[in-house]
Amino acid sequence: MTRRITGRLVVSALAISFAGEAMATEWNVSLWGKRRAFTEHVHKLAELVEEKTDGEFTMNISYGGLSNNRENLDGISIGAFEMAQFCAGYHPDKNRAITVLELPFMGVSTLEEETAVSHAVYDHPAVTEEMAQWNAKMLMTSPMPQYNIVGTGEPRDELADFDGMRVRATGGLGEAFRAVGAVPTSVTSSEAYQAMEGGVVDTVAFAQHAHLSFGTINEADWWTANLNPGTVNCPVVVNIDAYESLSEDERAALDSSVPEAIDHYLANYGELLARWDSVLEERGVEKVMISEEQLAQFEEVGGAPIQQAWIEEMSGQGLPAQELFDLVKSTLNEQRGTN
């Protein structure tokens, strides 16, 4: 009799143990490259979620082990992993609505402004609907400063110098460079160094962290400090089925951690920007300033015409393009009104 009771107790204890293990939630997260300023918010998010759920909700962050960067959205759509980061310019046909955020010369100046306009667009029904086609839910942006280019040889500080220049630039940035005679190519960030080293491109357009992380700054003789034609937009998304499968407490932990993760990202990136001049000096990279006259010409040719072309093309495809464009502008004005 005692053995029977003891046996039942052991079975019950094991059942409770297995039940506890089954209740834990573990997500796989697909990133690329290596840990850097661009991914710090994902790490912070994972840390916060684990803390808030007492270790019951954890995230395994992989850099290239689950998918390559151009296929992260596809991986989300089939549930190959639960969370991923991607950039709109890698496959603009799959995420047309958010490409409004990659249009050149939209007037965004700071990371805080970039965050505000991105999240406003992410919340638009057209974006929600388009992302749902990929079983993806927008979670947070990866705000980046205005792109600038590095190159070798003599600095290109006039628009005439851009004629025939092979530049790594995606999305609307690529179109802006094309408008002034350059030849854009959309090699991924991971391929940019090899493309520059091998002479496939003459210049590379990146935000500061990427020039560091992917080594293009090590090949550079010069960097444009104030070209600032725009940036790319790289959201973090989650698989809708995985998100809806979370318990209420897990979902609350995830959602509430997004603002904290973004704040951490902004603070961390701010430190990088503060020491950027010293990075250039250490590597012997010349800081090139484009004249106001040349900048105005670039914006005239590569700004409004490309914006209008995007509005017409996307409207023709059934998207509320003008509404999305106006949303960026109105959000930007609101954000500046609060500063």
Rank of each mutant, 00 (worst) to 15 (best):
V167E: 07
D249T: 14
A24C: 11
L272F: 04
P145K: 02
Q322F: 04
E286K: 03
F57T: 00
A296C: 08
A120L: 03
A97E: 07
G172M: 05
P259R: 10
R166W: 06
M83T: 08
R8C: 14
G318K: 04
E191A: 12
R251H: 09
E260I: 14
E158N: 13
S256N: 10
E271K: 13
E154R: 09
R156E: 04
D93R: 11
E197M: 11
A116M: 02
V183S: 03
C87F: 15
Q307I: 09
Q308F: 06
G230I: 05
A182H: 04
R275F: 03
V301M: 02
R283V: 07
P125K: 14
L273E: 13
N339F: 12
N218C: 03
G303I: 00
H41C: 02
T152A: 14
E286M: 07
V29S: 05
R156S: 11
E154F: 05
D157I: 05
G164Y: 00
E191M: 13
P143G: 03
T2S: 13
T224E: 09
S30Q: 04
Q297W: 00
S245Y: 05
V42K: 07
Q335I: 00
V117R: 08
G151W: 12
G318Y: 01
D123E: 15
G302W: 03
A210D: 15
S291N: 07
T6K: 14
E293H: 06
F57L: 12
A210S: 13
S291E: 02
E260G: 10
I76K: 01
S256M: 06
Q335R: 12
G199W: 08
W222I: 10
P125N: 09
S245W: 01
D161R: 02
A195I: 10
